[in-house]
Amino acid sequence: MPEASDQPPMPTDAGILEFLRLSDSFYPPDAVSASVAQQRIWYDALCAGFDRPLPEGMTTDDALVGAVPTRRYRPARVRANAKLLYIHGGGFVLGSLDSHHAICAELAEFAGAELISVGYRLAPEHVWPAQTDDAFTVLKLMLGEGARVVLIGDSAGGNVAAGLTLRARDEGLSGIIGQALIYPGLGGDLVSGSYHEMAQAPGLSTADVSYYRAVLKAPADEPVAHPLLARSVAGLPPAYITVAHFDPLRDDGRLYAGRLAAAGIEVWFREEPQMVHAWLRARHMSDGARDGFQALCLAVSRLAGSL
């Protein structure tokens, strides 16, 4: 196997390069070497720097589901026959109801669907399975109320979303009609494929992924925490999986899409050739990210029945 280059692989998309420059000004590339408290300060500033106003007529409501904070987004015109459940990224260590506020709002607006975002507990204060338990609490309430649900998650949230579909299937819960996984981490081996090729990718390195896994403390043999380990993916809902080319997590999404397709699950897979991890935040400054977000919104809309 060739040695990983000391020079990080870089896209050429001008908007993404500017996005990386701005992101580094808020959240330094070596952030994981700082305390968790400092990481959260930097990350919150980053998220606020990319925030945008709510779409016209959209309302939001914060509420507790048990002890789990949630935020409900309701567009001025609801036309979908399903609800969206969004689980945010941040390596299980960072993020909140505020960190993905504009992203959730724009997804809900495009799909014409109510969306509920989950403010799950974070590591290291709360190790696995706190994150999946919190999201599952909200999911069970939605399903218990008769909702048809599309699960959406980015990065660590994509991991939680994929794990929830396995958990719901194994517990005999019905009503999840789709899943949209955005550059998800699904438990790849950290040494081969994109973990090697993109080990020094801008925005997220393989060492960063290893750090977040160590902080989470999920059992290494647990499929809900590492969906690529699932013995069977039969019976899972249709999926849209999007990955970034310049991302160590890229092949997790590729491999999972392949497994779903081989099991006869309807799956749409899209690799963004110029994108880096966390490109969702660049959707208003990069043509490639804008196209990727449009494709995501269309897929979510189809899964939710609003197209």
Rank of each mutant, 00 (worst) to 15 (best):
M1P: 04
A4F: 10
Q7A: 01
P8F: 03
M10Y: 07
M10W: 04
M10I: 03
P11D: 11
P11E: 05
P11T: 08
T12V: 06
A14M: 08
E18P: 03
F26A: 03
P29W: 01
S35N: 05
S35G: 03
V36G: 07
V36S: 09
Q39K: 05
R40K: 06
Y43Q: 07
A45E: 14
C47E: 09
F50E: 14
D51R: 08
D51G: 10
P53T: 10
T60I: 07
A63I: 06
V65Y: 07
G66Q: 10
A67C: 00
A67T: 14
V68Y: 13
T70W: 14
R71Q: 01
R72Y: 00
R72D: 03
Y73N: 09
R74Y: 05
P75T: 10
P75I: 05
R77C: 00
V78D: 12
V78C: 09
N81R: 13
G91N: 11
G91R: 06
V93C: 00
G95Q: 11
D98T: 13
A105V: 13
E106K: 04
A111K: 13
G112E: 05
A113R: 14
L115M: 10
I116P: 01
I116R: 14
S117W: 07
S117N: 06
Y120I: 04
L122A: 07
A123Q: 10
P124L: 00
P124H: 01
P124M: 00
A130P: 13
Q131T: 11
D133K: 06
F136K: 15
T137R: 10
T137Q: 09
V138N: 02
L139G: 04
M142P: 00
G146N: 08
V149Q: 08
V149T: 10
G153H: 11
G153A: 06
D154V: 02
A161E: 11
A161M: 09
A162R: 12
T165G: 00
L166D: 04
G172R: 03
G172Q: 01
L173N: 09
S174W: 08
Y183S: 04
P184G: 04
G185K: 05
G187H: 14
D189V: 00
L190V: 00
V191K: 03
S194Y: 09
H196C: 00
E197K: 03
A199I: 01
Q200V: 01
L204N: 05
L204E: 08
S205P: 04
D208G: 02
D208L: 01
V209M: 11
Y212C: 09
A214H: 15
P219G: 11
D221S: 07
E222M: 09
V224K: 09
V224M: 06
A225Y: 15
H226P: 00
L228E: 08
R231I: 02
G235R: 12
L236Q: 12
P237I: 09
A239F: 11
I241S: 01
I241M: 02
I241V: 08
A244C: 07
D247T: 03
L249A: 02
D251V: 08
D252V: 03
R254M: 12
L260K: 15
I265Q: 15
V267C: 15
V276H: 07
A282F: 05
R283T: 01
H284E: 03
H284V: 01
G288P: 06
A289Y: 12
D291I: 08
F293Y: 15
C297H: 08
L298D: 12
A299Y: 14
S306F: 07
